[in-house]
């Protein structure tokens, strides 16, 4: 059976290819991972510690809180309607991600596995489209949205994702290319339409890649500050969390302890999402682990 259409059992590949799985190797790999993990974690520990400091201690050389001011997490809710912003952020990121998937997955497939004239040119166009600095593009685009009377709403942020996100198209195309052509050909020979091939072969096989693309567009929009500031700042009721993060500031200085407390809160939903999404990769492993 596998001779015709081999299953892919990635983790098993490493396991088997590695041959013996000695204890020493386990220790070595996990020590490296732990050391790396610690490096990745340290600055975030700083964020968390600052989040519970007093305003007076924030951004001083004393990194350990003198007193643990847990009330900061309450204060940020009092100072800013974070729940409203949370709703806006979820709306922005959710719709943008869904829109990206609907618009970009087919386009990426067409670029990766359909034959048509101008395909290579189109690919270059996708690459080119990522190269205009957003700070410059913002000026003509703002004028456009202003004429449509859509500034102050979430539409200028979301509509671009409904019309194909170039970063995602590029990423997805590259992932689709790693799927051997035989699978696609076999499905076509089965009489699948191209939409069928896409939905039944490409999408399931490229699930980690698609999950990654979805995750990134969600997180990018989640942390996007420039876009929401430009388009929603004039109507506080449509602010996102990322914009709200900048609101703990005064004329001269920022209340960093509150900013960091809010930062931690803003990270939490993203973290939960990541924990769920990364299971897509884990599943790949356990699935093949059982079978392989």
């Amino acid at each position: 059976m596998t001779a015709v259409l081999p299953r892919r059992r990635p983790a098993a590949a490493y396991r088997r290819a590695r041959g013996s799985t000695g204890f020493l190797e386990w220790v070595a790999i996990h020590s490296i991972a732990l050391a790396l993990g610690l490096m990745f974690l340290l600055p975030l520990v700083f964020v968390c510690l600052t989040a519970v400091m007093s305003d007076r201690q924030a951004l001083t050389a004393e990194l350990w809180p003198r007193q643990w001011q847990w009330a900061n997490f309450v204060t940020v809710f009092e100072k800013a309607p974070l729940l409203t912003y949370l709703g806006n952020s979820l709306l922005y990121s959710g719709v943008a991600t869904a829109g990206m998937l609907v618009s970009s997955v087919p386009a990426a497939y067409a670029l990766a596995r359909l034959r048509w004239r101008g395909r290579n040119l189109a690919f270059l166009a996708v690459v080119a489209a990522m190269m205009l600095p957003p700070q410059v593009v913002a000026v003509p685009l703002y004028l456009l949205w202003a004429r449509l009377d859509l500034t102050g709403t979430v539409w200028p942020l979301v509509i671009p994702y409904l019309l194909g996100d170039f970063f995602s198209i590029f990423l997805l195309r590259q992932f689709f290319l790693t799927i051997p052509r035989d699978y696609v050909d076999a499905a076509r020979a089965d009489g699948c339409s191209e939409a069928g091939v896409l939905l039944r072969v490409i999408v399931p096989m490229a699930r980690p890649g698609i999950a990654a693309a979805a995750l990134f567009s969600f997180l990018y929009t989640w942390n996007d500050y420039f876009g929401p500031l430009l388009y929603t700042a004039e109507r506080p009721e449509s602010w996102t969390l990322s914009v709200a993060l900048a609101s703990f500031r005064g004329m001269h200085r920022v209340e960093w302890n509150l900013t960091m407390a809010a930062t931690v809160l803003v990270m939490l939903p993203a973290l939960v999402l990541f924990l769920v999404a990364q299971k897509t990769f884990v599943k790949g492993i356990t699935f093949t682990g059982v079978k392989g």
């Binding site: 359909l114 166009a125 996708v126 080119a128 489209a129 593009v137 019309l163």
Partner: peptide
């Protein structure tokens, strides 16, 4: 059908 939205996006946003 697959690339139409992206083409519009390309024209407008690039």
């Amino acid at each position: 059908a697959f690339v139409a939205p992206a083409i519009i996006g390309f024209l407008v946003f690039f």
